[in-house]
Amino acid sequence: MICVKVNGRQETLPENYTIAQLLSQKELDASYVVVQLNLEIIERSLLSVTTLNEGDQLEIVKFLGGG
């Protein structure tokens, strides 16, 4: 298992877990979110081939109402 920080919260995940797997575990549609891994934006096409590593910091953001 590995420890990863997701949106500021510590999460324990299996090794070789991809970002796409994490999104589907969270029931998030990848086309609605933007993912930044250790301050680098991960293109949607790469979510299913990008695996998470111990100590990674992940931000998952989405659009909402704003002025």
Binding site: N7, E27, L28, V61, K62, F63, L64, G65, G66, G67
Partner: peptide
């Protein structure tokens, strides 16, 4: 305009 925020995993928006 729209804003960008962290996804809140406790809510189904």
């Amino acid at each position: 305009t729209v804003a960008l925020r962290r996804v809140d995993f406790d809510r189904r928006d």
